[in-house]
Design a protein around this nucleic acid. Structure first.
Length: 501
RNA sequence: UCCUCGGUAGCUCAAUGGCAGAGCAUGCGGCUGUUAACCGCAGGGUUGUAGGUUCGAAUCCUACCCGGGGAGCCA
């Protein structure tokens, strides 16, 4: 632990003392004989005031020369100041320029997605990204706590696998000493083996999908947590997922209040995340899609989108009229607002293109098929908190799912759908226990039986009811943070056509 | 693979067939309490690439390249 400097996050413990801060220059303002250096050290931001008359010449030169993201060591006295970020300010007595930064590309102004993604290694230093990563960290920490407190053992499933588990999705193939191998798309089957050894386990690791999905809800590499519990049935499984999500949201709201504020996250939907989550069977979900209520809801959404568009158009025209006589700083505000309006109107335009299709898709939805992205979203619009959809037709579910003893057409699967359009963040179910059934399923799915020999052993030696689920870390982070896109929920996103930096 | 929107200064954008511009960033100057500080001056351009239409193209047409969003696909 370093003893020669303090963290900005700990400034409150040093009020009135003289301390040294080490970090990077976030932004600078100043006048003749005075400079305001906003220092960033990873734990927070702090304004350091450098008064030319109160520091030596070298310090003043260092403060004057320091450019954005230059590394600095600043010594000074700590005092409380409510106006400042973090509530404290440092009156500098000396400034040392550790390393001068040249032409930092990310300015404290607006940037486009492509530019920011190309500079992801630097973008991570920005306030919003800092907040997201802190929330991600809290979610990871809370997940471990949640499971560890209940006696789960964390175990790791292999990342390299010799076969495509479910046969359906596209995997990344690699050369494994001359043989084909694949990057895992799920640790679930190995998780079952580990649960039979330890009772309750969870895996925490990266997962890979080679699908050519180019949407805000997909990454090619993402992190998934997969608990697997022996002697847990579908209901137990749903309660476990519900308990986990409630814990995550509660912890983030209490421990990351500052971060959520920086992200301008609307807290109302998060406050409503309390058990019990509505349990909606697939049959009920289909009824919801077919309902008149859904049709009315879609019409209403189309109407309100049109109204909002008209409002924005009017505002745009009004701003244009006022623009001529506006002061310079007002003009800048108008410019910023204009960009915002354009962006929002593009979104609305897209909604207006999509909503009628979604409405039609809901009305004509056929029992026995899987929900499309829009169907999921439409279903969640009927509720004010996450919902659990369960008991799906087995056709589109994995071979290892247990059948519903009360209706053989159904598999005991469950998905948790997050509200606010975030969709599926958890997927899982109760696993089949009968060896003969599993062998038949493997054959019916056209999968090679020989690679499942070890999996079948789990049913030969003390087969028990068990279930589990997978929760996508980035989707959870994106939902809780209210992010527009999964790419901001992971430090270095891997997307179709993007593997750098 | 398909649909859709876009590519103009380092960055964000404007210029709707007629002189390529603004703000930010950078450099210099001014200002002793700034909060995306402010004020003044300066440098900065193969308008994604190739071709075509036109007296004249950032703007229209064709092809290609790159990116955003969506569909398909996807525990």
């Amino acid at each position: 632990m370093p003893v020669d400097h303090v963290s900005i996050s700990n400034l409150s413990e040093h009020e009135g003392e003289t301390v040294t801060l080490k970090g990077w220059l976030y932004n600078k303002r100043g006048g003749k004989g005075i400079a305001f250096l906003i220092l960033r050290d990873g734990s927070g931001l702090a304004q350091c005031v450098v008064n030319q008359e109160e520091v030596d010449e070298a310090s003043w030169t260092a403060a004057s020369d320091a450019s954005q993201e230059s590394a600095l060591a600043i010594r000074g006295s700590v005092r409380a100041d409510e106006r400042q970020v973090g509530g404290y300010e440092v009156q500098a007595t000396s400034v040392e320029l550790i390393s001068k930064a040249e032409d930092y590309p990310i300015t404290p102004k607006e940037h486009g997605v492509e530019f920011l993604m190309n500079h992801r290694h630097l973008w991570l230093r920005s306030r919003k990204q800092w907040a997201v990563m802190r929330v991600r960290n809290q979610i990871i920490y809370s997940m471990h706590q949640f499971f560890q407190e209940q006696g789960f053992v964390q175990m790791d499933a292999p990342i390299l696998t010799g076969n495509a588990v479910e046969g359906t999705s596209t995997l990344f193939e690699i050369d494994y000493f001359g043989r084909p191998a694949y990057l895992t798309q799920s640790g679930q089957l190995h998780g079952e083996a580990m649960a039979m050894a330890m009772g309750k386990i969870y895996t925490f690791g990266p997962t890979f999908r080679a699908e050519k999905s180019k949407t805000r809800r997909h990454l090619t590499e993402f992190w998934m947590i997969e608990p697997e519990m022996a002697f847990y049935d579908l209901d137990d499984n749903m309660s476990m997922a519900e308990g986990l999500l409630c814990r995550l949201v509660t912890d983030v709201m209490s421990k990351c209040a500052t971060e959520l504020e920086m992200l301008e996250r609307d807290l109302e939907p998060l406050k409503r995340v309390e058990g019990p989550f509505p349990r909606v069977s697939y049959d009920e979900a289909v009824d919801i899609l077919h309902s008149d209520e859904t049709q009315r809801m879609m019409d209403q959404r189309i109407e309100s989108a049109k109204e909002e568009d008209a409002r924005l158009e009017a505002e745009l025209a009004e701003n244009k009229k006022a623009y001529g006589q506006a002061k310079k700083w007002q003009k800048r505000k108008f410019d910023a607002r204009e960009i915002e309006i354009h962006k929002r109107r593009n979104e609305i335009e897209e909604d207006l293109r999509n909503l009628p299709k979604w409405k039609e898709s809901a009305r004509t939805f056929e029992w026995g098929t899987d929900f499309g992205g829009s169907d999921e979203t439409v279903i969640t619009w009927h509720f004010d908190r996450p919902i659990i959809v369960h008991r799906f037709p087995h056709q589109f579910k994995a071979f290892y799912m247990k059948r519903d003893p009360e209706d053989d057409r159904l598999a005991l699967g469950m998905d948790v759908l997050a509200p606010e359009g975030y969709g599926e963040i958890v997927g899982g179910g109760e696993r089949a226990t009968d060896l003969a059934f599993l062998e038949a399923q493997v054959e019916a799915h056209g999968l090679p039986a020989e690679v499942f020999d070890w999996y079948f052993d789990l049913r030969k030696f003390g087969s028990v009811p068990h279930s589990g689920f997978g929760i996508g870390l980035e989707r959870t982070v994106a939902w809780i943070c209210g992010l527009h896109h999964l790419r901001e929920a992971i430090p270095f996103p891997r997307l179709l056509d993007r593997i750098h930096p």
